Amino acid sequence: MSWLDRITPGVSKMFAKRDTPENLWMKCPISGEMVFHKDLEAGMFVTPAGHHMRIGPEHRFKFTFDGDWKTLDTPEVPKDPLKFKDDKAYTSRLSAARKKTGRDDAMAIAQGSIGGVPSTVLVQDFAFMGGSLGMAAGEAFITAADAALAERTPLIAFTAAGGARMQEGCLSLMQMPRTTLAVRDLNEAGLPYIVILTDPTTGGVTASYAMLGDVHIAEPGAMIGFAGRRVIEQTIREKLPDDFQTAEYVLEKGMIDRVVHRRDLRDVLGRMLRTLMKRGGSNTPALRRNTAPADYAED
């Protein structure tokens, strides 16, 4: 008991330290400015300096759909098929990630309207084990593609990943061809598949469904690539440009179609989807896959 408690009991409680949330203020990586959390959320988690912070599925859905949306369940998969363990058991890592994010794995699916066009949206959550691609993520992607096929909607995928999940070995790598086949089904049905590349999109995700879209859009400053910068520099023994693997760099090199600010993304997607789905006229999607894989034609 302190001397203040002995002299005037109860007074110290009036000045007790309040618990302050750790994320009440967030630091902008570009400017170093501290931004109040509520101001950051009001600005769609884009700092005054323009840095697009990583966000989870709920905020993605909120910023993308016109209004309400319906979430879809993702399939269950074996929890630890290889009984993998490094310095921690894989099951422990999964439990920690689920407790941190409140979701079963890295993918979330929802259906709603974008610019008046019914759409299916898939979001990859980097907060869940770096958004890594494993069996659960692969099954979720296929579920989203099947839902788009069933409802005749476009599929919009927000990618964010450090690559394939090493704890699942070849089972994670198998998701690359499996998701590729799901994209092919969308192509054959004439349904648009649009990819929004967010920070970061790398590894096996870039090598599969992240680069198979009919249209590729990136958020400003997003890291987009396959291997890491250091590995590439050590391999080619050259210094890479400072903006290497940024959204702006890959746009200049023709790897993606547009870089769009988060505040403008819903409007851009709405106009694009109305054009591709021919809203206001025929209900037949405008997009058709020709015999040449990279060619598209309008009806």
Rank of each mutant, 00 (worst) to 15 (best):
A161E: 06
R98T: 08
G115F: 00
H261Y: 12
V11C: 07
I256P: 01
R178D: 05
Y296C: 02
M26W: 01
T74C: 12
F226C: 07
V183F: 06
A157C: 09
A144I: 07
G190D: 07
G32Y: 05
K79F: 14
S113M: 13
Q234Y: 14
Q124C: 10
M107T: 05
I224S: 05
P177V: 13
Q234G: 15
G56W: 04
D66E: 01
E248Q: 03
M107H: 09
S2E: 14
A210R: 03
M1S: 15
P200F: 02
T159L: 11
F15Y: 13
T8G: 04
E76R: 13
F65C: 06
Q175D: 05
P75Q: 08
Y209A: 07
W3S: 14
L269G: 01
F65K: 03
T206I: 03
A164C: 10
G131N: 14
G116D: 01
M166C: 07
A136F: 01
S92M: 09
T202H: 03
D242M: 15
G280T: 06
R18M: 14
P200L: 03
V123K: 06
T153D: 04
E33Y: 02
E76K: 14
F36R: 01
V250M: 01
F84V: 06
E41Y: 04
T198H: 09
K70S: 14
A161Q: 08
L273Q: 00
L197C: 08
T201K: 00
R6Q: 12
A136E: 11
A16G: 11
M107C: 07
R103C: 01
S2H: 12
T91L: 08
P241L: 14
L181N: 13
R279C: 05
P241W: 10
P9I: 01
M255S: 11
H51W: 10
M166H: 10
D267Y: 02
T74S: 11
W3H: 15
K79E: 15
P293N: 00
R279K: 15
N187T: 01
A144F: 06
L122P: 02
